[in-house]
């Protein structure tokens, strides 16, 4: 974090999604209606954790910034919001919903909160590791009519503008955007801190507000219907070879090298 920086970010909103922990080997429900989540470890989406870490670092590098964490989903999402508060967010908002919330609906819900809260920066993961959609940040930026800087691996804020380094297929792209803006985070932006026990205790006293998704007055009709979940086609069992000669022979056998 540089010194002498002119700070103009006063409020940062971070979106946290509750997902099946990335270490869990998922199982499908027998009727193909989804994945088994009963008794399965749930966590904050790793990309969103990075988003929150970045917000904390912005605060630690300068003047006071209020950090609000927001989640959309069932009442259990309070656990993930508490994790966010324990990491250092100031307050939390749960938009409660028992229906599957697709990215467009999530974006509309977040926009409602933005209109009320007026954050200078919205940070969220580039994708959630459950549906792997990679849409919400971009959709939010479109509806909000503000800049988007997706797949961020570096973020610098100076004079009401953010310079963002983005991980793209060709390498690293640097763009500069006016604030407020939406920034979606990639894995190399930072390494999130571990939550310590005293912080968990402190987080219990921080405000966590709940309101229902239905009360926001947005259209909840899904634009995409999910019909069924299936196992991916398995790859055929391969062979083990004993040494490099056997490897080369096997490759030649497959017609790869002549």
């Amino acid at each position: 974090m540089g010194e002498n920086r002119e700070w103009n970010v006063k409020k940062i909103m971070v979106c946290l999604k509750r997902v099946v922990d990335y270490n869990v080997r998922i199982r499908l429900r027998p009727d193909g209606s989804g994945v088994v989540t009963d008794g399965v470890k749930m966590s904050v989406n790793p990309f969103d954790e990075i988003a929150l870490e970045e917000a904390l670092r912005i605060r630690e590098g300068g003047s006071p910034v209020e950090i609000l964490v927001v989640s959309i989903g069932p009442a259990d999402c309070q656990q993930q919001l508490r994790t966010g508060l324990a990491m250092g967010a100031d307050r939390a908002l749960l938009i409660e919903s028992d229906i599957q919330v697709e990215p467009l609906i999530a974006a509309k819900a977040i926009l409602k909160v933005i209109e009320r809260e007026q954050p200078d920066l919205v940070l969220l993961g580039k994708q959630a590791i459950d549906d792997d959609c990679n849409q919400t940040g971009q959709m939010l930026a479109a509806l909000w009519q503000r800049p988007q800087a997706t797949f961020a691996s570096k973020l610098e804020i100076v004079d009401g503008r953010a310079t963002v380094t983005r991980e793209v297929d060709a390498g690293l792209e640097v763009i500069n955007v006016d604030l407020p803006a939406v920034v979606t985070t990639d894995l190399r932006l930072n390494e999130p801190r571990y939550v310590k026990l005293p912080d968990i205790m402190k987080a219990k006293k921080k405000p966590l507000q709940t309101e229902s998704l239905a009360s926001l007055g947005i259209d909840l009709e899904p634009r995409i219907r999910v019909l069924k979940y299936e196992e991916p086609a398995p790859r055929q069992k391969g062979v083990m070879v004993a040494d490099v000669d056997a490897l080369v022979a096997a490759l030649r056998d497959k017609g790869i090298f002549n």
């Binding site: 099946v20 080997r25 998922i26 499908l28 994945v35 590791i129 459950d130 549906d131 792997d132 999910v226 019909l227 069924k228 979940y229 299936e230 196992e231 991916p232």
Partner: peptide, 9 residues
Amino acid sequence: VYAGNAIVT
């Protein structure tokens, strides 16, 4: 979805 561990229609 789920890093390719399930396929949805």
